[in-house]
Design a protein around this nucleic acid. Structure first.
Lengths: 338, 338
DNA sequence: CGCTGGTGAGAGAGCGCTCTCTCAACATCG
DNA sequence: CGATGTTGAGAGAGCGCTCTCTCACCAGCG
């Protein structure tokens, strides 16, 4: 087993079969577990596998099986901020956990430049993966269109845009946002503003939509500033809101990161939270718990989202129907900021 | 080209060859560009490729070529916080950019549980990738050992531990840290403390080592508190340092995130930065620029690090020698905090 | 005792690709 | 004019695996 020997080559199923004294077919049956094999030969094969440290060659296997045992998760590249703070790591954890159960592997691809996206398309077309999960889609994203024609199952978070119809798993953005605003109203806040997410994303749109419906319903004037889901963006947007309407007493931020930025802007403006302004975030990632004061926020089941996305794409890869779009529930978590 | 037709199957090289009226071998030569082909047949093949939307099947190709055209970047799972702010995204960007030049693909794998690490080993052994870059290695990490025996080239950041010898690319941690401490001395600070990184990581060790050498050389008392590279950790460590020695007038934090935490702790303790305490960070990630005050910090060429790691593993995959360990330079960037 | 049915295992045909080997066609030279 | 390159292109042998097809073997039955 000298890996450095010039003539060493990886053991093949042939080697295993010879060592175990069986045919290649039988060795294959044992290794892939596709057919029952008598106990005597089974153990002989398994011993040979262990002795030779045999691992099946994926290329050979997937050439005939048309399966690779891995699924791609495509993340947007501009994730400098978002990647870090909880959402994507949690999503990845969920997806990984789900795939682990069927002993499959998650590979993460970053969609960067146009060239990068084309290479992802080639990668998928080339048969490297059995399915693709798009973690984040915005309205002018060409990737769904590029991948839809590959014949490989593609699913996405939230929902797809335009003409491309993709199976999706989403969270109840509207319900969560409505709950947040209703809660602010219930605790007596009358001038409720929102720091909205990018209007190019489903999450941004849906959370803002719910805010608008709730404020109209309460005969309140909508106060909206859009930002990009980041701390810095939230800070700036909140400053703008305060300039427009200094008497704000409630604030719904469409992400926890923006809520953290809002907390900073409010502190700088001399407002106390929650006494002067009650703040509610969205996401319930780590920083919500460590913020000062700890954020009241809308919890999303991100890990579940990852798991369900994987299940969906696995179902499609197995040739089953996608079924109706799945929407996971959200829930308001009360802490100190509202 | 109806992808939904039940009998549709991906075009093969055979199909391309037939359509172009050439042999499969010639089609292969054109597609892979391995041999010159007369202009007439070349264009016929290319037209057939375009007509059929042909993309080579990777499994078939790598079965014989023993190449996959993709490289793995293995990230530690517990990266939610650690290194999160910019380090990994930047590293990924560099690695991707470098691979793009040879039209190869980066796949990111997360090393989580022990089971997850085993699956990564299987994935690599199975021949899914031509090489592996380990983005972060700590002293008891079993992954280098697991992967070293696969016959697939593996390189790592900084340096490997224990008995496993891996080719590495590092940054000049010691030089950068020494420069930071010397700068603090030069501007007249006499009680210089450090918030050190985890002693289980090369970066943590080397930066602390340089700090210790510089303080001994200056006949100053070392003041060390260890943290985990996070904001929260930096905050707590700084609080401990202030309790131990309230007269601290200089602080070297081994990461920008910890420096940001330190800024918060110092503000809470009523210290002004840089007047009362001068603070220097390490990394020069985004948050260094947006911190208040903007952080004076040690810049590391993270994107270059990603590029060089990829080049190294590509060289190994091509059968070349690794050459001497590469160490990239660091540089002190002066901003407002010191 | 011959026939059926069930079971375990081998033979062998590919999956789609690359690459060596071979050879035809033509130019060049003694 | 035959011997010798030189070049372009086809034939065909695998790469390592799965899976169907086939068959040997044995129990159970009439």
């Amino acid at each position: 087993m000298d890996l450095t020997a010039p003539e060493w080559h990886r053991p093949t199923l042939e080697d295993v079969a010879r060592r175990a004294g069986v045919s290649r077919a039988t060795a294959s049956r044992v290794v892939s577990g596709s057919h029952p094999v008598s106990e005597r030969r089974r153990s002989a094969v398994l011993r040979a596998v262990a002795d030779l440290q045999y691992v099946p060659n994926q290329a050979g296997r997937s050439l005939v099986s048309r399966r690779t045992g891995s699924y791609a998760l495509v993340l947007p590249e501009g994730m400098g901020q978002v990647f870090s703070e909880g959402f994507f790591p949690t999503l990845i954890r969920g997806a990984t956990a789900e795939l682990e159960e069927s002993d499959e592997q998650l590979v993460i691809l970053l969609a960067g430049s146009a060239a990068g996206r084309r290479r992802i398309e080639q990668f998928v077309r080339g048969g490297h993966v059995d399915g693709v999960v798009l973690a984040s889609v915005h309205d002018r994203d060409p990737l769904p269109g590029l991948l839809a024609g590959t014949g490989v199952p593609v699913v996405c978070c939230e929902r797809a845009y335009g003409d491309v119809q993709l199976p999706c798993v989403g969270v109840d953005n509207a319900g969560g946002a409505a709950a947040a605003v209703r809660y602010l109203k219930r605790i007596g806040r009358t001038r409720i503003a929102t720091v909205a997410g990018p209007s190019s994303t489903p999450a941004g749109q849906d959370r803002l939509g719910a805010y608008l419906r709730e404020t109209v319903r309460g005969h309140r004037r909508p106060l909206v500033a859009e930002a990009d889901f980041t701390v810095e963006g939230g800070r700036a947007a909140t400053a703008r809101l305060l300039a427009e309407e200094p008497r704000i007493d409630g604030l719904f931020a469409a992400s926890d990161l923006m809520a953290v930025g809002a907390l900073e802007a409010l502190r700088r403006a001399g407002r106390r939270v929650p006494e002067d302004v009650a703040v509610v975030g969205f996401d319930d990632v780590d920083c919500a718990r460590t913020a000062e004061p700890a954020l009241t926020t809308v919890h999303q089941p991100i890990e579940q989202l990852g798991r369900q996305l994987v299940r969906l794409v696995q179902r499609l890869a197995a040739g089953e129907e996608a079924g109706p779009a799945l929407v996971l529930p959200t829930a308001l978590v009360l802490r100190d900021s509202a």
